[in-house]
Design a binder for these strands. Structure first.
Length: 269
DNA sequence: CACGAGACCTGTTCGC
DNA sequence: TGCGAACAGGTCTCGT
């Protein structure tokens, strides 16, 4: 599920709900959800730490606690839900944090791919991430240079979190469509004007996602509306909203990839 | 360095 | 209707 807009939405929601609360207790029901330290140490160490601030880096949610930073990555099916008090526990609630306010934060994760870290050195977890798409450091010129520093298909490159942080399968397909670039285009072959267009499209599409509180698909992640604005994602066979050509789906880098063969021609055919 | 396959997991949808 | 295959918002590791 969660890409940058969904994680941003969840982080902002959490900030309103649990900022300044202290973690009184923690129940780990799927031990592998804890990446580091081991589950027992994690539970012991997080107790009585207070949530001083919340932020997002790429697809990670960061809780600045009294002594450590709690980092959470939701991967494919994770979500963070806040209950006003201890209620029903879902079978997919993998970690449950009880707060001194009586509230409960539930890390719900059907597929169990999500992970949490507790460390005083968050750089050890997020240090290899590429730039934030909305940071001032992510300029069109830097993006162009980065594209030419690689010789890879543009779609898998944009999904590479060490290249650029935050894009996932939905927003990559939507960005490439918006910029009119074939997902198979080799990064080093993208010229300056096209690179600048892609840079703008990435920000535009992510912003639209954030404005719609992310995308809700199937049973995973509730509350988003960006799925109503998809132009290629999950529109296989439907007419392109620009030219009417049926949207195609293929596999690139082992990921389902949606595109308009007319609006996103591969250079040279 | 770039890329594909296989893992990690569960649930839903598709095809015969 | 039933059942297995295919597929799903992500990322890591290994082999070529």
């Amino acid at each position: 599920m969660p890409e940058l807009p969904e994680v941003e939405t969840i982080t902002n929601r959490l900030r309103v709900q649990v900022l300044n609360a202290s973690i009184r207790d923690c129940d780990v029901r799927w031990r592998k959800s804890v990446a580091t330290p081991n589950a027992d140490q994690f539970i012991h160490q997080i107790k009585d730490q207070r949530i001083l601030s919340l932020s997002r880096r790429g697809k990670f949610i960061l809780f600045q606690l009294t002594y450590d930073v709690l980092l959470i990555h939701l991967r494919m099916s994770g979500d963070l839900l806040v209950d006003p008090e201890t209620n029903s526990i879902d079978k997919h609630d993998q970690i449950i944090f009880t707060l001194d306010t009586g509230q409960v934060i539930k890390f719900n994760d059907t597929r169990k791919f999500g992970r949490v870290w507790l460390t005083d050195d968050p750089e050890s977890v997020v240090g290899k991430l590429g730039p934030e798409p909305f940071s001032e450091a992510f300029t069109p010129a830097i993006f162009f240079d980065a594209l030419h520093g690689k010789h890879r298909q543009i779609k898998p490159l944009l999904l590479d979190q060490s290249f650029l942080a935050g894009l996932g399968n939905i927003y990559t397909d939507e960005s490439l469509f918006d910029a009119g670039i074939s997902p198979r285009t080799i990064s080093a072959d993208i010229n300056a004007p096209t690179s600048e267009r892609l840079h703008a499209s990435i920000r535009k599409v992510l912003l639209k996602g954030i404005e719609n509180n992310g995308a809700s698909i199937d049973w995973v992640y509730k509350g988003g509306g960006f799925q109503n604005h998809f132009r290629v994602y999950q529109r296989t066979g439907q007419p392109c909203l620009n030219c009417g050509t049926p949207i195609q789906k293929t596999v690139i880098g082992q990921r389902g990839t949606h595109y308009c063969p007319n609006c996103q021609p591969f250079p040279g055919g």
